[in-house]
Amino acid sequence: MSVKTLTINDTPVAVEAGATILEAAKQAGITIPTLCHLEGVSDVGACRLCLVEIKGINKLLPACVTEVAEGMEVQTETAKLREYRKMTVELLFSEGNHVCSVCVANGACELQDMAVTVGMDHSRFSYRFPDRPIDISHPSFAIDHNRCILCTRCVRVCAEIEGAHVWDVANRGEKCYVISGLDQPWGEVNACTSCGKCVEACPTGAIFHKGETTGEKTSDPGLLDFLVTARKKQQWIR
C-alpha cells in the first residue's frame, strides 16, 4: 500500500494513495465543511463548500473529489476560503425558497446548520423566489423542490445503495431540478421501492416523510454509511 505525505494547515498527514483531501483531513481531525458529500456514496463536487487552497495551484479545488499528492500543501481555513464558503451558502439560500420557520427540517437541516457554521446572518444576494413545484404523489414521501439545493445525494443514494435509480437530474442552470423516473410524478414511478433512503440522504427539507409538519423531520445520514459498511465489509457497526 503506497502512502502519500502532505500537510493540511501545516500539519503533516500521511494517507493511502488515492484518498481525497477530504479523507486525509478527516484522518488528521480537520473538519472541512461539506454539503453534497455523503459517507457511503460517490462524490460529485456539486456544492463547492469543501473548496481548499493548494500551494502552487492558483484555483480553489474541492477537497471531496481531489486526490492527495505527495508533498501537497493544503490550507482549509484561509480568509479567502471563509469568504467563499459564506458566499456559497448565501447563494444557495437566494437560489431556492428556503423558509426555515415553516420547514419540516427546521432544526435538523444541514443547510441551516451550514449557515450557522459559516456565519451567514443574511444573504447579500437578492432572493430569486423561483416558482417551483411540490410533488406529494408518493404514498409515503414528498419532495418540495423549493428546498432542493441540487446536491444530488438522493440521486446517488438511490442508484448506488438501493440500486433503484429513481432520481436523476434534468435541465441545466436555473432550470435544473431533480426528477423521479422519466420526470413522472414520484407516486407513479414503478422503480421506487419506497425504501426511504433518499429521505435520510437529503440534507434539507426537500425530501421528507409525507404528513410531517414544521420541524418534524429527523434525518439520519449516518444510516447510509452503516448500510454500505454492513454490505461490503459484513460489519454491522455504527
Partner: peptide, 14 residues
C-alpha cells in the same frame, strides 16, 4: 396555495 395541507398549522401560526 400549493403547499401541503399538513404545513398549514405551521404557516398560519405565523
Amino acid at each position: 396555495e400549493g403547499r401541503p395541507f399538513t404545513e398549514m398549522a405551521g404557516i398560519t401560526a405565523r
